[in-house]
Design a protein around this nucleic acid. Structure first.
Length: 161
DNA sequence: GCCAACGTTGGC
DNA sequence: GCCAACGTTGGC
């Protein structure tokens, strides 16, 4: 069991889109970065937790929780000439690009905004918060996951301000 | 819209 | 293999 953060622009595909899918499930296609591809192909397993992050958004932040329901398999959009993610260089016999399938678990509404996340000292080392970080599929530690779950639970705390 | 940070491409 | 040019990401 491991934890991940997936980025998406909500104007393109937000957590609401995932909730609207059949069985709240979709293939996470279109990833065209090798480091992210390696996670999708090799590391992400059924049952892993996913933080659904809205980038280029107002507000930018974690908008939902999902779970992995299918491990890495070839991304069909790479072979589809109609797809904007088509990659003619990818050979179906030895695919370049992979996807996993995820299912929505629950929305975080309102999202956990980026400024809020930056305030949490236990999250200071998150890949997401590193300056210049662009990785669209990234690992999250168990500790970070638990902290975020607690924040997402929305329970009032004494120290809240 | 700006621009820093990053990844990829291609000439050499 | 080096690295400049270019395109993209993503916060602000």
């Amino acid at each position: 069991m491991a934890y991940w953060l997936f980025k998406s622009e909500p104007e393109v595909y937000g957590f609401d889109h995932l909730l609207a899918e059949t069985d709240r499930t979709t293939g996470w296609d279109g990833v065209r970065n090798y480091q992210a591809r390696n996670f999708l192909r090799d590391s992400i397993k059924v049952g892993d937790g996913v933080l659904f992050y809205h980038s280029n958004a107002d507000p930018a932040g974690i908008a939902g929780i999902a779970e992995v329901v299918r491990a890495g398999h070839p991304d069909p959009t790479a072979f589809d000439p109609e797809s904007e993610h088509h990659d003619p260089k990818s050979d179906p016999a030895s695919p370049t690009w992979y996807q996993v399938s995820i299912r929505a678990v629950k929305a975080i509404d309102p999202p956990l905004g980026l400024p809020r996340l930056k305030e949490i000292s236990e999250l200071a080392d998150m890949e997401l918060l590193r300056k210049g970080s662009r990785l669209s599929v990234q690992p999250v530690t168990e500790r970070e996951w638990k902290v975020i779950m607690a924040l997402a639970g929305g329970k009032p705390k004494k120290k809240q301000r």
